[in-house]
């Protein structure tokens, strides 16, 4: 998810790991099948900003890396 390009649409495939961070990511809406869109990033490229389920979610790069995504046609 950290490699997502601005303006493209993606679908979540899986969240890696089984710790508190993974649980929080899932609880925040990053479950398999969820549609995401990268909106932008803070200065120096971190944290990153995504839209999912109609709201804006800020994530650090290190957390975004745990989310596997696949591009979908927009």
């Amino acid at each position: 998810m950290s490699a997502a390009r601005t303006g493209c649409r993606y679908a979540v495939v899986a969240v890696h790991g089984d710790d508190a961070i993974a649980q929080r990511l899932t609880a925040g809406g990053l479950w398999p099948g969820a549609q995401i869109e990268r909106l932008g990033q803070a200065p120096f490229g971190d944290p990153m900003l995504f839209r999912l389920h109609g709201y804006r979610l800020a994530l650090r790069k290190s957390e975004a890396q745990r989310v596997q995504i696949v591009e979908v046609a927009s």
Binding site: I21, L57, A58, R60, E63
Partner: peptide
């Protein structure tokens, strides 16, 4: 420590 930032921008 492992901190995280998972925050909604309202």
């Amino acid at each position: 420590g492992t901190s995280m930032l998972l925050m909604e921008l309202p």
